[in-house]
């Protein structure tokens, strides 16, 4: 299979979406004869170009970070470019990969419903949506987050071999759906540690104090 992968991360350089894609592609290429075309999309010209490539592709994976519980504005611009293709994409396979910082899968579920709906409107064969939280900072350590990387590899491998996403595999990868009540004490401690060693360290490195990080430049 020839797969067009569109990376809709708005970041100019390194991005967490690309880290997951890299592993997914390794898995996908494990099956002989599979080919990948990667297209990076983060400017007006690229949204138009991506829509042209989408039209002729046999199978597409659209990957992006979750912004405000939905697709980033740039990815929405691309989706608007697809309007002339509504009802015209019979036989085209389309899948999605959505990654973000919060750990739980629930944050992307409503968007997933939208992505499935719009795939249907285009008359594409909807493959599914790979949802993965806890992905903030993937670009920072090549060795950490092994489970997150390997999960993407395994999903790519399955897709490469079968041409489909396996629902159970996606659900296992996305877990937890929400946090269980009995874990809330432990989780609140983990969150405090993340705030301290991840966020606080990051702003202090820029000379921003703890109090300064709470600045209210435009209001109360």
């Amino acid at each position: 299979m020839k797969l067009l992968i569109i990376n809709g991360s708005p970041k100019p350089g390194k991005n967490n979406t690309a880290v997951l894609l890299k592993r997914f592609i390794e898995g996908f290429k494990g099956t002989k004869g599979n080919e990948v075309e990667i297209f990076r999309m983060n400017n007006e010209q690229a949204y138009k170009e991506a829509a042209i490539r989408f039209e002729t592709a046999e199978a597409v994976l659209l990957a992006f970070p979750l912004y405000s519980y939905a697709m980033p504005a740039g990815v929405k611009t691309f989706i608007e470019e697809l309007e002339p293709l509504l009802g015209k994409c019979h036989g085209k396979k389309v899948g999605f990969l959505v990654q973000y910082g919060f750990i739980e899968a629930v944050h992307a579920r409503a968007l997933e419903t939208y992505l499935e709906y719009i795939s249907g409107m285009l008359c594409c064969d909807y493959l599914g949506t790979i949802i993965k939280g806890g992905c903030d900072g993937l670009t920072k350590s090549e060795k950490g987050n092994r489970k997150i990387r390997m999960g993407a590899y395994e999903i790519g491998k399955t897709f490469g071999a079968t041409g489909c996403f396996n629902k159970k595999q996606l659900d296992d990868y996305s877990a937890p759906e929400v946090q269980k009540k009995q874990n809330s004490f432990l989780l609140s401690i983990i969150i405090k540690i993340i705030n301290k060693v991840y966020w606080e360290k990051a702003f202090k490195k820029n000379g921003v104090t703890y109090e300064g990080s709470f600045a209210k430049p435009y209001g109360k």
Partner: peptide, 15 residues
């Protein structure tokens, strides 16, 4: 477009 640079969180809070 927002480019996810986090400057508004980590460099110039709120801006």
């Amino acid at each position: 477009d927002c480019i996810g640079c986090y400057a508004c969180w980590l460099k110039t809070p709120g801006i």
